[in-house]
Design a protein around this nucleic acid. Structure first.
Lengths: 195, 195
DNA sequence: AAATACGCTTGATAAAGATCAATCTATTTT
DNA sequence: AAAATAGATTGATCTTTATCAAGCGTATTT
């Protein structure tokens, strides 16, 4: 079960606590390894997001489709992130989002119920959740701040600084959508800012 | 100490658990009531946000000032919300934000250290934090989604639906800034959408 | 009561970004 | 290998939003 190692490392790193052999067995007993092929959907709009998945390998996009058929990417997720629409996952309500694999993926998935019953009681996990929740709050605040107060060009520069690997890994049209821009606009921004 | 009642109600409501008389004494022992007058700063850019405050009464804005001297409002906070720049509060790093009272306020404030040591061990409080963190994640996601995929007009309509009391309570120029618009643009949006 | 500050509106103009269409290249797919 | 697809770029034009300036009414302040 070598693909659990990434999850163990992640929990231990974020929590600053060690997992016992027993703890690890609880993880192995309840998280299910799953493969998702490129272009396959992990979640479809209107469905309830029953699972969250820890991404061992691969990448995905979380997006909506508007009335004109245009995609808007809310989130790009890669290794060591959790894949889910958390609104739907926590409340078990139909999701407004789609989640689709951008590359072949390996995830470890689990339901909300099993997390609450078996995983959360593990102290390292619940410590990890606290840290993660703080990090998310901070990141969300920063992105929102950029969004209301900066131009497309400034937001792009910030993304280059904060997540340089995103620029390498994902095509420019996805980056544009993530920034709330059209691909044409991002293309022109890059052209101008390189001068 | 009747101004603690709002805090007790809030914790009990969000957590779904009751606070014992002892729990309440712990709150009273560590949260300090504080008054902040209109226009007074709770936090100034560059300072560390040492306290978080539960808002018993009043309202505040969290904002940045850009190179051109323009304010950008990231957050409007009212009764039963927590006042802080959480990035600075959690990490004890200098804040990029200002927090200023929009009305005379009464808050109950506390440091991060005291929360961790005395308040978090209260089960109802830590349950409340979990719920709050979920709610915040959901709200942040929703606002971000609006920001990247909707026009100013649509974002304004969503705000009217989701937080109608904000529209009543705050002047239009603050609402505009919160939406990432200039006051002129919001004025024109309202004019056109009433037709 | 006068003065000041604040918030809202309107007009003219400029800038940022979207849309539509075409082209080009590099992958994939068949 | 040929065909299809995906992604990037460019040009022309349109829409949305910002900027600058002025004017107006209403609270506050003095």
């Amino acid at each position: 079960m070598h693909n659990f190692q990434a999850l163990f490392d992640y929990v231990q790193k974020l929590s600053g606590e060690m997992l016992s052999a027993d703890d690890k067995q609880v993880f192995i007993a309840h998280f299910k390894p799953k493969k998702i092929r490129k272009r396959q959907y992990f979640l479809q709009e209107g469905d309830v997001c029953k699972y969250t998945g820890f991404i061992v390998k691969g990448a995905a996009k979380t997006f909506t489709v508007d009335e004109k058929g245009h995609e808007h990417i809310l989130k790009l997720s890669v290794e060591n992130w959790w894949l889910a629409d958390f609104e739907s996952f926590y409340k078990l309500t139909p999701s407004r989002f789609n989640i689709e694999a951008l590359e072949d993926m390996e995830i470890l998935q689990i339901t909300h119920g099993l997390v609450e019953e078996f995983i959360k009681p593990i102290p390292a996990f619940s410590a990890m959740q606290n840290v993660l929740s703080q990090n998310n709050t901070i990141a969300a605040q920063k992105r929102m701040q950029s969004s209301i107060s900066q131009t497309g060009e400034e937001r792009f520069q910030e993304l280059v600084n904060d997540y340089p690997h995103f620029i390498q890994r994902f095509p420019q049209n996805l980056i544009a959508s993530y920034l709330g821009l059209t691909p044409e606009t991002l293309s022109r921004i890059r052209k101008n800012s390189s001068k």
